[in-house]
């Protein structure tokens, strides 16, 4: 019986070791996250004084924060911006990744490495040229660019698109070419074959790609600080400017800040957990080579 149950990676860890690993990791996650939840309902006076267990729960933070911060508009802006940049990354990246996988052009490996290498370029370095390009467009076409939704979305696409393209190319490599040919023989055009045959097969990869590119924007503070305008401030900027107004105050509202952080984190945590299975499947698929 022992033999039958010992045939997999889970048995590499001795049951005792496994329990220790699980407990230690769970505690290191539960304690800080629990502290965050606790602080979010601790009266501001007590957070400032370093109280760990509040005398009473100040659930009112979750009500007051909407008025005290730009959280509501920030979250809406972040959803619009990150949603559109990840939609664009998925669409363009799926096409570019598919083509890069199917066409064995000269310098293909170099091109794919270059896409990955883009992740090594610091945001600060790309930011100014982007601002320059955007300011140029602004002057040339007499339209507002900097401060608009799409300017911020495009800035995130700078990082999301190469990553998504590279990832989808790796995933499509594991989809047999015979499927492309079969679609073609059935009379589908290349593009139709891609949409109707390939796209449904790479859904897990698209989920990973979408999630990763959504997170690029949601967690970013730097790009949003420089490129977003008063009407398009993202949730990170809203929280950061709230924090800035609290520093040096007699009574900083850290409790309220934590409540706002919890709420701003909730959508991505839910998204992550909801897509969990897809993400693992997507990564597994990209590795089969």
């Amino acid at each position: 019986m022992a033999g039958a149950r010992r045939g997999d990676a889970a048995d590499i860890l001795h049951p005792v070791v496994r329990t220790i690993v699980r407990s230690v990791l769970a505690l290191t996650i539960i304690i800080p996250v629990g502290y965050m939840l606790l602080m979010s309902v601790t009266p501001n006076v007590e957070v400032a004084a370093g109280t760990v267990w509040p005398t009473h729960f100040a659930f009112s933070h979750y009500v007051k924060m909407w008025a005290g911060t730009n959280l509501g508009s920030g979250m809406l802006n972040s959803v619009i911006i990150c949603g559109s940049s990840s939609a664009a990354a998925i669409l363009l990246g799926a096409i570019a990744g598919y083509v890069s996988s199917r066409v064995r052009f000269r310098g293909r490996t170099g091109f794919l490495s270059l896409l990955l290498a883009f992740q090594s370029i610091p945001t600060v370095m790309v930011l100014l040229p982007l601002v320059i390009v955007m300011a140029g467009l602004q002057g040339l076409m007499h339209i507002a660019v900097i401060g608009t939704y799409w300017a911020v979305a495009v800035a995130y696409l700078t990082f999301a698109l190469p990553l998504v393209t590279w990832f989808i190319a790796a995933y499509v490599d594991s989809v047999p070419r015979e499927l492309d040919d079969a679609a073609r023989l059935d009379g589908a055009s290349t593009f139709q074959g891609f949409i109707k045959v390939i796209m449904p097969l790479i859904v897990p990869a698209l989920a990973v790609a979408g999630l990763l590119s959504f997170l690029v924007g949601w967690g970013d503070l730097l790009i949003a600080t420089v490129i977003s305008g008063p009407g398009t401030h993202t949730v990170a900027v809203a929280l950061d400017s709230f924090l800035a107004t609290q520093e040096g105050q007699v009574l900083p509202q850290f409790g309220t800040l934590m409540a706002a952080s919890v709420v701003s984190a909730a959508p991505v945590v839910i998204l992550y957990l909801g897509l969990q299975r897809f993400v693992v499947a997507g990564l597994t698929g990209a590795s089969v080579k």
Binding site: L128, L161, P162, S189, T190
Partner: peptide
């Protein structure tokens, strides 16, 4: 069959060039 593939790639390639390659070179 290469031609439709290359045509499909054009929009994505242009975007990559404008928002990635050009800013990196300007930098």
């Amino acid at each position: 069959d290469l031609r439709p593939l290359v045509l499909m790639m054009i929009p994505a390639a242009l975007v990559l060039i404008i928002i990635d390659l050009a800013p990196a070179i300007i930098g």
